[in-house]
Amino acid sequence: MSDVNRLITQYLGIWNERDEARRNAIIKEVLTEDSVYSDPDYAGIEGHAALSAAIGTAHEKFGDLVFGLGEIIGAHHDTALFTWRLGPAGTDEAVGTGYDVIEFAGGRIRRVVGFF
């Protein structure tokens, strides 16, 4: 598995991790300390703690639904574009889909811009 695939898979795992302590440990491993996340609902979440809190809120909203990787559309230099789906665990069924653009720095994710 390439580094890009590994990081994207780990990143989606952050969104699926319900245990806050485990989620925080993965965030520290995968994202830079100065990481920024934005999507249509969030203008710019800065740092590990803020992202973890937002994900905890999302779990309340999404219930048992999980994120899965759709397709890595492309990657070049320090940027990648991929699709994801949100749906019941163990299925390819999707109740939501989207695209994320991620930027890398030092072997970790520095910025995520999500579209859904």
Rank of each mutant, 00 (worst) to 15 (best):
residue 83 T to A: 03
residue 68 G to I: 06
residue 103 E to Q: 10
residue 61 K to G: 07
residue 95 V to M: 07
residue 74 G to A: 06
residue 79 T to W: 13
residue 67 F to L: 06
residue 88 P to H: 07
residue 103 E to G: 15
residue 105 A to P: 05
residue 98 G to K: 01
residue 79 T to L: 12
residue 104 F to C: 11
residue 66 V to C: 12
residue 109 I to D: 00
residue 90 G to P: 01
residue 103 E to H: 13
residue 70 G to P: 01
residue 83 T to I: 01
residue 69 L to A: 00
residue 83 T to Y: 04
residue 91 T to F: 12
residue 85 R to H: 14
residue 62 F to R: 11
residue 78 D to N: 11
residue 109 I to T: 07
residue 75 A to M: 10
residue 74 G to P: 05
residue 77 H to V: 12
residue 63 G to N: 08
residue 84 W to F: 03
residue 92 D to V: 12
residue 82 F to S: 00
residue 81 L to M: 12
residue 84 W to N: 00
residue 108 R to G: 03
residue 89 A to F: 08
residue 88 P to L: 13
residue 96 G to F: 03
residue 86 L to A: 06
residue 63 G to K: 03
residue 93 E to L: 09
residue 96 G to L: 12
residue 76 H to I: 06
residue 62 F to P: 02
residue 100 D to N: 06
residue 72 I to M: 11
residue 71 E to K: 05
residue 62 F to D: 12
residue 80 A to C: 07
residue 82 F to L: 00
residue 95 V to R: 07
residue 62 F to Y: 14
residue 96 G to P: 03
residue 104 F to I: 06
residue 105 A to Y: 13
residue 69 L to K: 02
residue 109 I to W: 01
residue 106 G to I: 06
residue 67 F to W: 14
residue 85 R to D: 12
residue 75 A to Q: 06
residue 86 L to Y: 04
residue 78 D to I: 13
residue 89 A to N: 15
residue 75 A to E: 09
residue 79 T to F: 15
residue 110 R to G: 12
residue 93 E to I: 10
residue 89 A to K: 10
residue 104 F to A: 13
residue 67 F to Q: 08
residue 75 A to W: 03
residue 107 G to M: 13
residue 95 V to E: 03
residue 72 I to W: 08
residue 96 G to E: 09
residue 88 P to A: 07
residue 108 R to Y: 11
residue 90 G to T: 10
residue 97 T to N: 07
residue 75 A to V: 10
residue 85 R to Q: 08
residue 89 A to R: 13
residue 104 F to K: 07
residue 80 A to R: 03
residue 68 G to F: 10
residue 77 H to N: 13
residue 79 T to D: 15
residue 68 G to K: 04
residue 70 G to M: 02
residue 88 P to K: 08
residue 70 G to V: 05
residue 82 F to E: 01
residue 76 H to V: 10
residue 67 F to M: 09
residue 78 D to S: 14
residue 61 K to P: 07
residue 99 Y to K: 09
residue 85 R to F: 03
residue 105 A to D: 14
residue 87 G to W: 03
residue 63 G to R: 01
residue 80 A to E: 09
residue 80 A to N: 06
residue 63 G to E: 04
residue 110 R to H: 14
residue 105 A to V: 14
residue 93 E to C: 08
residue 86 L to E: 01
residue 62 F to C: 15
residue 70 G to Q: 00
residue 88 P to R: 05
residue 74 G to V: 08
residue 69 L to I: 01
residue 109 I to Q: 02
residue 84 W to K: 00
